[in-house]
Amino acid sequence: MESTQTDIDAEIAAADAVALPGRIHPDRDYPPYRSTVLRHPKQSLVVVRDPEAVELSGPVFGVTDVLGHDADLTRQHRGEPLGERITVTGRVLDRDGHPIRGQLVEVWQANAAGRYAHGGDRHPAPLDPNFTGAGRCLTDDEGRYTFTTMRPGAYPWRNHRNAWRPAHIHFSLFGTAFTQRLVTQMYFPGDPLHARDPILRAVADEKARRRLIADYDHDLSVPEWSLGYRWDIVLDGPAATWIEEGR
């Protein structure tokens, strides 16, 4: 039988009750998000402590890979997209607080109506001919990224009856090592859907979960133009010592 939001809320509470305190990343086995059930390994991860592991280095990107206007998602078509124009900016740091410089940041998102420019999205909300919703940039010497885009809408999904994803922007990040790879989602402050969303709630630790919610920053808002959000990203994972010393 199809689960209700009440069922999911109860499952989230039950998962919270047994979650390891201080755990940052979501448990891959998280039944309130139904698609995890058959897609998580049951064996423990095998820990690699090899200082020669290739994964302690990682891919690099540069100005050949990214064009300047890729960071402005409102300028990819002839006309202006519909919705609320926003800028999102922040720094990409490693877990010691050092900036990740010159590295690729990729984003994708639904349009202001909550519809992805993806053939698989059947939500009967309008596509926007002036908005695709994909962008990329390279971080600067302080690890900073900046995107101009439209605030995405919430949208329904079929995890359970009347399931709605809170508005979010998908982020893909690289560090100096493949082990620092991160794909995550940025959420907007004050959204009543946060508490009901099993993907966000899969991060059981409240402090860690807050890391996924951007801050509205009035000083970043531009008069007569756009609202500003700030969101810093801290990458997990070790990197080869020689790379850190070389940067």
């Binding site: 995550t184 991060v203 801290v234 997990d236």
Partner: peptide, 10 residues
């Protein structure tokens, strides 16, 4: 620093 948690690629 508190690390940013992972979320599904969707």
């Amino acid at each position: 620093m508190t690390v940013t948690p992972s979320q599904t690629v969707g």
